[in-house]
């Protein structure tokens, strides 16, 4: 297995190198997506399936879609990477070696918070330790991460509209029919991934990524879907953050403390937060990609 891991590491480093040094931006984006998939594999090898799922869905999938959508708006050009001064090579090399040494010496004395997590897992309302940490023990981290996503979308909106360039319209009904057929399945997967998060790898971010993909496919097939002028969609963007913090305040009312749950209500409240968060994440991610795609306004108006 060590040889496979070394191969994986080699491939990741090689692809990262290629991504940075690609002459054409298109090539860089494609390599970046491939890199994301390999990093997801690396997470899986590190026995972090939650991170692997998120990396594959968001790091490779949706980030790739965003990059491709942005690429279409840029004028065709080749970037010639600046050769790096040898001094920088030396500095970065030194930094890398130091880091390797540090990681090596950390590995010899493993410490972590896992014992605490396992001790308190029965009171957390969920049985999957990752979900317990993200949604209960360190809930404010996750709530603010959701806020980061919301503010990233706010930032994108503030930057203005994409230029309107035309698309090749899709001929025939193949795409629309297939999307219609696949949609219920995607919804099912999203709900399943969300539900599964309480006891096994999965959760709001992964489920939201599936939802975002479903919305994007609806749009690609020119079916009625996501219209940012609709109130429900706008409310959906902030639903996750709102619900998360309102439940957090509920903890204060009940005397548990800010961002706390009563142990007997934890399961239900966590599921409520995760559902709202998954919807929000899906809507936000899909909106981000759609807003970067040229021609969105012309097609919906």
């Amino acid at each position: 297995m060590i040889w496979l891991d070394l191969m994986l590491v080699g491939l990741i480093l090689g692809l990262a190198w290629r991504c940075v040094h690609a002459i054409e931006l298109m090539e860089a984006v494609v390599v970046f997506v491939a890199l994301g998939m390999l990093v997801a594999l690396a997470w899986a090898r590190l026995q972090a399936p939650d991170a692997a799922l998120a990396e594959a869905a968001i790091g490779a999938g949706l980030a790739g879609a965003l990059l491709l959508a942005t690429l279409r708006q840029l004028p065709a050009q080749a970037v010639r990477p600046q050769p790096l001064h040898w001094l920088w090579w030396g500095l970065w090399g030194l930094f890398g070696v130091t880091l390797l040494w540090a990681i090596g010496s950390i590995l010899s004395t493993p410490v972590s918070l896992m014992p605490w997590v396992n001790t308190h897992l029965p009171e957390a309302g969920v049985s999957h330790p990752v979900t317990a940490v993200l949604l209960n023990f360190r809930a404010l981290d996750t709530a603010l991460e959701l806020a980061v996503l919301l503010w990233a979308w706010m930032a994108q909106r503030a930057l203005g509209e994409s230029p309107d360039t035309s698309f090749h319209p899709v001929q025939g009904r193949v795409l629309a029919t297939a999307v219609k057929a696949l949609l219920p399945l995607m919804g099912l997967v999203a709900v399943y991934v969300l539900w599964r998060g309480s006891s096994a790898p999965g959760g709001a971010f992964q489920s939201g990524a599936v939802l975002a993909a479903a919305w994007l496919m609806l749009w690609l097939a020119d079916l009625p879907g996501l219209d940012p002028r609709r109130w429900s969609v706008r409310l959906g963007w902030l639903g996750g953050v709102m619900v998360f913090f309102l439940v957090g305040l509920l903890g204060l009312v009940q005397g548990i403390g800010f961002m706390g749950y009563r142990p007997d209500q934890a399961t239900g409240l966590i599921l409520l937060i995760e559902s709202a968060a998954a919807l929000s994440i899906g809507l936000l991610l899909a909106s981000m990609v759609l807003a970067s795609l040229p021609g969105i306004k012309g097609r919906r108006a």
């Binding site: 918070l113 605490w116 997590v117 308190h120 209960n136 023990f137 360190r138 809930a139 404010l140 903890g251 548990i256 403390g257 800010f258 961002m259 706390g260 749950y261």
Partner: peptide, 9 residues
Amino acid sequence: LGGWLPPLG
């Protein structure tokens, strides 16, 4: 926060 004392919370 949430009544979880550090190091857990």
